[in-house]
Nucleic acid binder design. Structure first.
Lengths: 195, 195
DNA sequence: GAATTCATGTAAGATGTTACATGATTAG
DNA sequence: CTAATCATGTAACATCTTACATGAATTC
């Protein structure tokens, strides 16, 4: 039930925010660690309200509802933060593919690996630009958001390096499989192309 | 629809496997990058069969069904592997909490961060033990599985280092907020406890 | 006054979790 | 003969995605 706590936490930090406001935060910031669509968000706001963890503090133009966290909501959020150990998410579609790379030709494998390296390089550039572009405040969301950006950079760099390393590993594995002769044992007159 | 392809890929690599066999592979290996419960797996096998991507090659004792990938299944798997760019999963419950760490006391924050560092250290040890314990074969699943273990180690080490770094960052941020005086400006006679 | 942004909501369907249910075969 | 393992399935429920639907207020 993390979406519940993501929404609860956002409302705690952004008192008086509307669903629309929260949605923008998900898009630009929180969504990087816990994405949510509009329909899911409004649904969750309804449930949170019914459960008495948040309440409508004010209604504005266009049916705008300004939410506020209740005492019971704050207690629930605190409980989640300090007492409930987070569970790691193991899903990684990219690594899932790595398991099956033996089913396609070596050229496709290398294309895949190089694609990942390049993509992660671009992503790292984007993160750098993003970080410079935001004018970071001193509010909690900014302070901790900045730490998470640093995490994103380290994560992307680690993956890029791993994909580079793994591509080499696979390459030398392929070499051994297709040219099992040890170096120095070539037949005379049999020259390597491009050597 | 990644579960579909995870199952399809496993059957491609483990010809003649039963749902039960596949389930064990999810538990010990594939589940680290794409988890699946028993009920989900059997459901998916049914759908895959209906779609003609796999077929029952043989029936054994206790109603055991030995599955085999079909040509159309192999084509679908290949298509997924080379033509469909994998999408990254952004969900990270632990980092989600980091966003809201400003809502609890500094002591709780440090407890949380230290807990993460310790947990990741233990996990790294486990991975090392696991790696030594397995007798790695030369089959695809072993070869690529070994690469993924290395990924797991780098991932855990990166996270551990980040949590250590972030804990220090937060600590010095707290210092600035609660003791805004610069060092060397203390009043005479005002001593720090525990100094 | 037209386009954009603000603002909320619902419905259908896919995906995933927890729990229940059953029974055959093998190992000790 | 008892326990463990092998083996498959279903039902209820929670979560998440995609698409539809509507309209008020603001900006140009």
């Amino acid at each position: 039930m993390s979406l519940r706590h993501a929404v609860l936490g956002l409302i705690a930090e952004m008192d008086g925010a509307s669903g629309y406001d929260l949605l923008k935060m998900f898009e630009i910031s929180l969504g990087n660690v816990w994405p949510a669509r509009q329909s899911q968000l409004y649904g969750e706001l309804g449930k949170l309200s019914d459960a008495g963890l948040i309440e409508v503090a004010d209604e504005g133009p266009r049916g705008r509802k300004a939410y506020r966290i209740t005492d019971s909501g704050r207690a629930e959020l605190r409980h989640w933060l300090v007492d409930v150990p987070p569970k790691g998410n193991r899903k990684d579609e990219t690594l899932l593919r790595v398991f099956f790379l033996g089913l396609v030709e070596p050229e496709e494998v290398q294309r895949f690996m190089r694609g990942q390296v390049a993509g992660l390089g671009r992503y790292l550039d984007e993160l750098g630009t993003l970080e410079k572009g935001i004018d970071w405040g001193e509010d909690d969301l900014s302070v901790y958001g900045r730490l998470v950006i640093e995490y994103g950079k380290r994560y992307a760099a680690m993956r890029r390096d791993w994909f580079e390393w793994a591509a080499h590993e696979i390459d030398s594995l392929d070499d051994r499989a297709h040219r099992p002769k040890r170096p120095g044992q070539e037949q005379p007159g049999e020259e390597r192309p491009g050597g």
